[in-house]
Amino acid sequence: MDCKDQKKMWKSGMTLLACLSFALFSCSDDEKKVYVYSPHVSYAVSMGEASDGNIMTDKGNVLVPDESSVGHDLTDGERVFVNCSVLEREDEHTYRVRINKYYQLLTKEMVRASVSDDEELGNDPVEVKAAWFGGGYLNVRLGLEYNPSSGTSHLINMVYDDVKSTSDTLYLTLRHNAFADTVRTEIGTATASFNLENVVGETTKEKVYVRLRWQWYAPGGRLVTWEDKGYYYTSSTEEGEESGEPEESENSVNIQ
């Protein structure tokens, strides 16, 4: 299956299980996907992991922060989303950049359904605003109901159905525990990365079908199950990077 065919897999229409398409990129090109060129400077947004003061992006490029960077002291192993200006291309995969801002991303392991505490996981509504594969993770931008004045930290987990899943298909469910935070007060946003590699395991297959479900509102306010699905390419090194910034604003929800 080529890149065009793969992307088509994610453009499913709405059905009832209210299917919502979401972009899980595995074969986008770095230059085409994340860079916007001007006559003077290039800007980029990328996700990756900090290592020895640099950032290894999900596509395998190295971003070397310039001294002019804002908040460029990075902790090794920290997964981050960065907005930066490209100052110089040092070689094919290395860029010297000025970091304009960066956010530490919540990174979590999948929770196995067979050993999970269902009550602790919660069943509060959660929206998948965007999702994509990158760096061996399923990265998800979320919409959550919350009370801005409460300061409550919400619990988000990706549950892996280790009974129903096979070597060909992974069944995942996004779960949200708001800890009784006021419902339908305001919609906030958050971003998290969930480790896919540990549940894909030692499969020798080139691709695994991923099915993701979550509970959110349909038009009219009724809670329904939304679903989307597509292939995760286990052997591909050309995973996609998200092309927009995480929505860090006054509507950001604290999640754990």
Rank of each mutant, 00 (worst) to 15 (best):
residue 61 N to I: 04
residue 120 E to Q: 11
residue 114 S to E: 09
residue 37 Y to S: 12
residue 254 N to S: 14
residue 181 D to H: 06
residue 97 V to Y: 04
residue 35 Y to R: 15
residue 133 F to E: 04
residue 175 R to W: 01
residue 91 D to Q: 00
residue 63 L to V: 07
residue 144 L to N: 06
residue 245 E to K: 01
residue 159 V to R: 03
residue 93 H to K: 14
residue 244 G to Q: 07
residue 162 D to C: 01
residue 36 V to M: 07
residue 121 L to Y: 01
residue 221 G to T: 12
residue 99 I to A: 01
residue 168 D to R: 11
residue 23 A to E: 14
residue 124 D to K: 01
residue 123 N to I: 10
residue 191 T to F: 04
residue 173 T to Q: 13
residue 225 T to M: 12
residue 3 C to E: 09
residue 48 G to T: 11
residue 212 L to D: 02
residue 176 H to L: 05
residue 77 G to K: 03
residue 23 A to R: 10
residue 183 V to H: 10
residue 119 E to K: 13
residue 19 C to V: 08
residue 2 D to P: 09
residue 40 H to Q: 09
residue 185 T to P: 00
residue 43 Y to R: 10
residue 139 N to E: 12
residue 201 G to R: 05
residue 132 W to S: 13
residue 248 E to Y: 13
residue 87 L to C: 02
residue 106 L to W: 01
residue 229 K to H: 13
residue 22 F to M: 12
residue 101 K to L: 11
residue 171 Y to Q: 11
residue 40 H to N: 07
residue 53 G to K: 10
residue 90 E to P: 00
residue 232 Y to S: 01
residue 229 K to T: 13
residue 113 A to L: 15
residue 242 E to F: 12
residue 58 D to S: 06
residue 157 N to T: 07
residue 15 T to Y: 04
residue 97 V to P: 03
residue 88 E to T: 07
residue 185 T to L: 07
residue 30 D to L: 14
residue 47 M to W: 03
residue 75 T to N: 11
residue 230 G to D: 10
residue 95 Y to V: 05
residue 74 L to V: 06
residue 50 A to M: 04
residue 127 E to G: 00
residue 91 D to W: 01
residue 245 E to G: 01
residue 75 T to S: 10
residue 208 V to T: 13
residue 105 L to S: 04
residue 202 E to I: 04
residue 17 L to F: 12
residue 103 Y to I: 08
residue 174 L to R: 02
residue 199 V to W: 02
residue 42 S to L: 05
residue 141 R to D: 15
residue 85 S to Q: 14
residue 121 L to E: 15
residue 17 L to M: 12
residue 244 G to A: 08
residue 250 E to A: 10
residue 197 E to Q: 14
residue 238 E to T: 13
residue 94 T to I: 02
residue 189 T to D: 12
residue 234 T to M: 08
residue 231 Y to R: 01
residue 120 E to K: 13
residue 41 V to C: 05
residue 112 R to H: 14
residue 3 C to F: 06
residue 90 E to Q: 12
